[in-house]
């Protein structure tokens, strides 16, 4: 009896702080995102008036919101495809082929992941600077430009952002896949070699299927993190400009908050929430396979 009492006291003491912090700073705000999207709130007073779905009705007539959603989807899709394609390919090369200096490459490729997005955006503004920027001066070596290329101009800003985001993400996923690929038993490749299967066949028939579970989990989380990363990059690199050409949904949500339109801002938050869950669920469904044992 005494022991049982001590046990529950111990459990409560251990679990209560984490549960309380989690409830206050994660569950409550999440619930609030959904609740506040149905209200209108004064900029400085906590008085709220219930407006139903009015914020959402406004939202779908707001061309800037539609544009920011389109940009977000575009960034998520393209960054995911490029990052996963390149990371898987390079991880396979580095684990399968006897590349010298494998460790050095691994260390270097991981560097962007430890830098703050603010630092990366500083680095990329030096790269993209129209006059005397790294990229334009490199291109200038090969052919003379009359007008400098505006990498952060309206037409090129999205590709420029994609490049920066891929630059940041690739190393992390490469290192992760190298770890899971190195656990695939060598004997499988040996027998594949005997059967005359080439590198490409081995990659698609052995490597990818065997680490599929890992790819699936990381893909789901990558999508959620890319929605967020797109915001971090846009906020630091372009602030959504020029003329909203690079705005993404989370950045638009944040700017509405700065404008004091809290209800409207949270309606955007709800759309982002639902979108990210729906997308994760879709990806999860589409990528479902029988897990392979090895």
């Amino acid at each position: 009896m005494y022991k049982n009492k001590g046990r529950s006291r111990f459990l409560v003491l251990c679990l209560a702080p984490a549960t309380i912090l989690f409830a206050i700073f994660m569950i409550l705000p999440t619930v609030n995102v959904f609740r506040m999207s149905l209200f209108e709130r004064g900029a400085y007073s906590p008085n709220e008036t219930f407006v139903g779905l009015k914020n959402f009705q406004q939202l779908f007539q707001d061309s800037q919101f539609i544009r920011s959603m389109q940009n977000m989807i575009l960034l998520v899709v393209i960054v995911t495809i490029i990052t996963f394609g390149v990371a898987l390919l390079f991880a396979a090369i580095l684990t399968r082929e006897k590349v010298k200096g494998q460790n050095l490459f691994r260390i270097v490729f991981y560097i962007p992941n430890i830098l703050s997005v603010v630092v990366i955006s500083g680095i990329f503004s030096a790269i993209y600077k129209p006059e005397n920027g790294m990229l334009n001066s490199l291109i200038g070596l090969f052919h003379t430009m009359t007008n400098p290329i505006l990498w952060k101009g309206e037409t090129l800003v999205i590709p420029s952002l994609i490049l920066a985001m891929v630059w940041q993400a690739i190393g992390y996923y490469m290192v992760m896949y190298m770890a899971s690929m190195s656990s695939v038993p060598e004997s499988l490749y040996e027998s594949a070699n005997l059967d005359g299967a080439g590198r490409v066949t081995q990659f698609f028939q052995i490597t990818i299927p065997l680490i599929w579970t890992n790819i699936r989990t990381t893909l789901t989380f990558f999508i959620i993190s890319t929605i967020n990363m797109a915001f971090l990059f846009v906020k630091a690199m372009t602030s959504g400009g020029p003329n909203g050409a690079s705005d993404v949904a989370l950045n638009y949500m944040y700017s509405q908050k700065d404008a004091g339109l809290y209800g409207y801002s949270m309606a955007i938050g709800v759309v982002i929430f639902l979108f990210s869950f729906a997308l994760s669920a879709c990806v999860n469904r589409v990528t479902e396979r029988e897990p392979l044992e090895f």
């Binding site: 989690f22 994660m26 609030n32 995102v33 506040m36 989370l250 944040y254």
Partner: peptide
């Protein structure tokens, strides 16, 4: 509790930064 903490993995801080800010300001 485990399910709740697990669900927390899917919530990005920046999705909920506005309510956190308003809660602290209130």
């Amino acid at each position: 509790l485990r399910v709740l903490f697990m669900a927390g993995l899917f919530i990005n801080v920046n999705y909920i930064v506005v309510p956190i800010f308003l809660m602290l300001r209130d």
